[in-house]
Design a protein around this nucleic acid. Structure first.
Lengths: 109, 109
DNA sequence: TGCTTTTATCGTAAAAATACAATAAATAAA
DNA sequence: TTTATTTATTGTATTTTTACGATAAAAGCA
């Protein structure tokens, strides 16, 4: 992207945007859905599950890990990933507060 | 961004990603928060409210409108924008279902 | 009609995101 | 130690996003 002028926005606005940006790609949505679905760690089968090259998946996993939404533990030659429960809950609170604002009762335009 | 291979993902995954992408910039988050805050239409003061150039704001508004999250009606020389209530509610349902999935009870990694 | 105000569009420079081949790194197995 | 397996990193071409100056378009006012 071009350079977003983050300094002119509040911390909350930037935080919401950062979370949203990581959900802004279907591959990462897919990875997260898979982690929820299997209800456990994913050890290595993500590349087969999603049809992207291994470096691409690794890059997406890194972004999710950088935001703290998933965690990975080394298990032999492979790495097991799962949802970071605490951080996911914290993210959810922030996003729900943004999405769940009261809509105006009156019709204006 | 580079080209996302949307054809290899489900409609839902692409829909979630599209909504998230539009929230993935603090300026658009700010615009939406302002629309909620004033609980009415915004007619022209968005450029002063947010510190970006007028064409930039116009571009962000267009993206929000393209996704149907806001609507605008012409009012003289200015245009009044507000949240599109039905579409916002629909978007919220999709996003909440994604964010509010059950976390695994067991600690795996 | 001519001028002002407000918003949209066009064009474009700069920066970021995406995808993947090539390669490195790390661990297990032989 | 050598080989195999799995994941991370590097490098890079392509595309998209962002921001804004310049300009057009649309409506009100003089």
């Amino acid at each position: 992207m071009g350079l977003a002028k983050t300094e002119m926005f509040t911390d909350l606005q930037n935080e919401i945007a950062l979370y949203a940006k990581v959900f802004g790609h279907p591959a990462r949505v897919s990875i997260l859905q898979h982690l929820f679905k299997i209800d456990a760690c994913v050890c290595g089968d993500l590349v087969n599950e999603i049809g992207l090259a291994q470096p691409t998946i690794s890059q997406h996993l890194k972004e999710l890990k950088n935001l703290g939404l998933i965690q990975g533990t080394v298990e032999g030659t492979s790495v097991c990933y799962c949802i970071h429960k605490e951080n996911w809950t914290q993210m959810k609170e922030v996003m729900l507060k943004f999405l769940d604002q009261d809509l105006p009762k009156s019709d204006c335009c």
